[in-house]
Amino acid sequence: MSLLVAKDIAIHFGGVKAVDGVSFSVEEGEVFAIIGPNGAGKSTIFNLISRIYPLTHGKISFDGKDITRLKAHDIAQLGIARTFQNIELFDHSTVLQNMLMGRHTHSRTSFVENILFTPKVRQQERDHRKRVEEMIEFLELEAYRNKMIAGLPYGVRKVVEIGRALAIGPKMILLDEPASGLSVEESQEVAFWIEDMRRDMGLTVLMVEHDMGLVSAVADRVLAVANGRMLAEGTAAEVQADPHVQAAYLGTAPAGEPA
């Protein structure tokens, strides 16, 4: 059974059909990429999955459970973590604190216990820290552990955001343009991490990406969207060869179809 199934999902903002009748399913342990030109609705699909936007119609299920009506803050609990296109970190906290915030769903202490800082809270803090340190080591962020986000370079922030998502301990991670704004070396690094996430952590990766080099390197399957509609699905090579996809990127309609 597929891990994530999106069935005929759509969202309309007034008359604008940002996403219209998109269906796909992501298998467990797979790297699935969504590509498409700017404004195609890729990030919107992410926002639908993470319940930031309400669906106009359609259904999304994760791990056999219907998540269409869940609240945004219930999603992490199920094991779906995400990053954001424009980096949404907590700017006035350190890297370590940011990643500890990723452990929120695993906190089992009430605010009263927190205020009294009972031994249970301390033990929980140690456990959180241990998990976070694993992520710091994995992403080689040791040097930045106690640095404020506000002063970090763009590339590092992107990595911290991935780390924070991983700290949730998810089953699936949604990466919104993980390589945008990164140098060639940095995006190669991202490719390795995605491989490792899948292989060592057993994660399912769903990503939106422009960099076709990265997509071809890591993605098992690719879905191409344009104007909120599905164009093609298949391996990276198949999708790239698809005439509809080429037309969408070049801005012309393929022969025999109205524009």
Partner: peptide, 11 residues
């Protein structure tokens, strides 16, 4: 600092 990512972390 960021409501939207707070939500995404399950807060």
């Amino acid at each position: 600092d960021s409501e939207v990512s707070a939500r995404a972390l399950g807060i």
